[in-house]
Design a protein around this nucleic acid. Structure first.
Lengths: 144, 144
DNA sequence: GAAGATTGAGAGCTCAATCTTC
DNA sequence: GAAGATTGAGCTCTCAATCTTC
């Protein structure tokens, strides 16, 4: 449930550890509606794109490799949250289409995720939240 | 190479994203000496414990499940960085023992990791680094 | 029975190679 | 040939079940 069992003796370690803890916490709550973080993120992207999106586009928007999406959609399809459609304009392309069950799961999972986020922020004052966002951005902008 | 392809529209997402990016960056550099982050963390723990430690202890110190350690040590053993020993006092227990190659890898990987950490911190002033540490600690203390 | 380790099944990720379609 | 998707192999991780030893 904690994906990164790393040491905590440094800033890098502290950051990774905090992220891992938060991620595990979010995953645990999402499990109650049959979702994981990656699954929820995928569902949200599909919903954002208007209930249907090419697998290739999904990979780009989730910043991951195409083969990963193939498998993620396989599982989402097995869950009944997504179905695969075809693009009439390009027979190479496959579409991930949200099912009614997928829309429900996205709705519920999204609420859980947003609540987790609000709870996270509730421990920080507005100015602290802004500080954190700024620091993370500063860190992120230097590691491409 | 990026373990968490999550959305970035919130603090939680931003944190997870920053951690993922940093982790990917560290992994990429470690790959040059044949190591991954989990492998390095394990080697460091073994070294810290005096070049030898029970698998059970290793699991505890890396905050992960025992079966994960079994497999991680399998790979480390295949790499030639670790060998399995027995505890004369308890025949149930198995020891992870650092090989000379493992010690070298730990040394080199540790230097790479520390350099990555220094580089990370170089983008922050001392007071910013303290702020970040404080904020992360604040976040972490409320998610058990 | 409890503790230590392992095995089996499976989620989530990567890369390299392949297949189809453009 | 290039783009979209998939498959196969492998890493990291979890949980449940098992085996040995205490």
């Amino acid at each position: 449930m904690h994906d990164s069992p790393v040491d905590v003796r440094g800033q890098l370690g502290a950051l990774l550890h905090a992220a891992g803890t938060l991620q595990a916490s979010a995953e645990a709550r999402l499990a109650e509606v049959g979702l994981s973080l990656p699954k929820l993120m995928a569902l949200r992207k599909i919903a954002d794109a208007g209930e249907s999106i090419a697998l290739s586009q999904l990979a780009t928007r989730l910043s991951c490799v195409k083969s990963n999406i193939t498998q993620l959609v396989d599982r989402l399809e097995a869950d009944g949250f997504v179905s695969r459609g075809t693009d009439p304009n390009d027979r190479r392309s496959r579409l991930a289409v949200l099912t009614p069950e997928g829309r429900d799961a996205c709705q519920q999972g999204g609420a859980i995720y947003d609540a987790a986020e609000r709870e996270l922020l509730s421990h920080l004052s507005d100015s602290e939240a802004r500080q954190l966002a700024g620091l993370l951005e500063k860190l992120g902008s230097h590691s491409g």
